[in-house]
Amino acid sequence: MSTDETTQASAAQQSEASPGIIFEGVVKRFGDHTVLNELNFHVGKGERVTLIGPSGSGKTTILRLLMTLEHLTGGYIYVDGEPLTHKKENGKRVELRAKQVAQTRKRIGMVFQQFNLFPNMSVMENIIEAPIHVLGKSKEEARGRAQQLLDQVGLGDRGDAHPTQLSGGQQQRVAIARALAMDPEIILLDEVTSALDPELVGDVLNVLRDLAATTDITMLIVTHEMQFAQDVSDRVLMFDGGKIIEDAKPDVMFSNPSNERTKEFLRAVL
């Protein structure tokens, strides 16, 4: 146990804020293909971190590991100091039970590229489903909060609509409201504007800018919207081949990167 604490403490010292998320020696393989190899990084509580890099560099895998959508091949992930899926016990790596995993996972919300709203439910039902059945809120309480969130994302009058009746941008804003309804400490944004028509991107990004400005929620962002990344991020991590090759504040990363690969990548996307 003492080794756990010292590792976490040392990781915490590296971070300016207290550690919200720690990746420690994280390995992810799909069959023979290694996506992440011995990855270490941390995200402070309330920090907004954007992951950039060429496709296949492992950015999305990081979010999916945090959301427990992928099985962790090796290493450890800590959320608020709690092990997420695996813990160290007497020097051994032990997988946690599903119940324990669920307990920590509740602190994390995710918004997907393809929205993934439940098509058989109305907008309101989509948002109140988990607060009622996971957090144990009453229907009235959940509805009240959902209405607040719908107002916040500019869809206050669409609660009774079904997802298929909404535009992509509207669906994505509902998905953001659905994730926020769980009051997560951490929100993962996985290319949330990539599936949208260009004219719908602005509304979604504005909702997220607003969220960044008005809350202290920790954000982990994978995006190709570099202006948005620059506006909301505290830190930008450049990934290549499953490794962090540059870690810098957004103004430095986008105007004066030090790594050659980063320069090349940014020239291609900006």
């Binding site: 996972r105 994390i108 919300g109 059945h133 996971v134 994730a179």
Partner: peptide, 9 residues
């Protein structure tokens, strides 16, 4: 995946 992300049992 959305159900997992919402921790639905």
């Amino acid at each position: 995946e959305a159900a997992t992300a919402l921790s639905l049992p």
